[in-house]
């Protein structure tokens, strides 16, 4: 009782907290009020927020076109208040190519999962890189097909259990993971390639800076910018959000190390 009383005495009123000068955090104005369908702990929501913040801070809402994939982020258009095109599975880089070439003053980005980008859409992403399209690609690598219920993705780690590798991914049966960011770094059409994560506040800050840099590079006419976010899919991985973060750091980061891979302006 005394503790409670003390807290009450020390507390400031809600009116005080609401004053703009006391606010240390806010929802970016470009995030809509729609309730996100993402599982609690999923990286998608965090990355959406970072993308929304970058577009807002750069003041480019009226010049930005986003392309959603098929995957859990298929409904990204419900959450970020910009113009969107919803692509067929894997085809987002083709839509982005035409959009950017026909509207060169626009900021054009795709937002794609690892099934979308690294499996069914490999031709589209490789050739967009090869042609040096001046677009941004945000690549959510959670090592699994989240949307369809947790099947193996091309990025699934060896030994990792998914609904189609119930005994763990076996290279004899399922082959080896594709490391897309490293693969496309060899292509002359790519300008900036980085791998980030959003599991801690500092990591999210770095990821945001990377996304901003990618957007800025896309207007320089120097080629494609690619931001991979090593992500969690706690539902697909069957782990709590905290354990999923831990598992990601201990396992995913070994195969997909965090950091810049290529920056042609450096």
């Amino acid at each position: 009782m005394t503790g409670h009383k003390q807290m009450k005495d020390m507390s400031i009123s809600i009116e005080e907290i609401k004053k703009p000068e006391n606010r240390i955090y806010g929802k970016p104005s470009l995030l809509t009020d729609n309730v996100m369908h993402y599982c609690p702990g999923c990286s998608h929501g965090t990355v959406h927020k970072l993308v929304a913040e970058v577009i807002e801070e750069m003041g480019i809402q009226d010049k930005t076109v986003g392309i959603c994939p098929v995957g859990c982020s298929v409904f990204a258009y419900n959450y970020i208040d910009i113009d969107w095109q919803e692509a067929a599975h894997g085809r987002a880089p083709a839509l982005a190519t035409a959009t950017k070439r026909l509207c060169p003053d626009k900021y054009v980005f795709t937002y794609q999962g690892d099934g979308d980008l690294a499996s069914i859409g490999t031709a589209e992403i490789i050739h967009a890189c090869g042609r040096g399209e001046n677009i941004v690609v945000i690549f959510i690598n959670n090592g699994i097909y989240g949307m369809t219920g947790g099947q193996m993705a091309p990025t699934t780690l060896i030994g990792m259990k998914t609904s189609t590798t119930p005994y763990g991914r076996d290279p004899k049966l399922n082959g080896f993971p594709l490391v897309i960011a490293d693969m496309i770094a060899h292509l002359d059409g790519t300008a900036y390639i980085t791998r980030q994560s959003v599991h801690t506040a500092p990591a999210a800050r770095k990821a945001k800076n990377a996304i901003r840099k990618a957007f800025e590079y896309s207007q320089k006419g120097i080629g494609l910018s690619f931001v991979e976010i090593v992500s969690t899919c706690n539902s697909g991985w069957k782990l709590t959000p905290v354990d999923a973060n831990k598992w990601m750091v201990e396992n995913m980061f070994k195969k997909y190390p965090i950091g810049d891979i290529k920056d042609i302006l450096k």
């Binding site: 095109q85 692509a87 085809r91 190519t97 035409a98 959009t99 026909l102 031709a123 589209e124 050739h127």
Partner: peptide
């Protein structure tokens, strides 16, 4: 010149969207 017809029709999708 696209890398495939799959891609060219999806370029059409993107361009038509604009």
């Amino acid at each position: 010149q696209a890398e495939s017809e799959t891609s060219s029709i999806n370029m059409i999708y993107g361009g038509a969207s604009c």
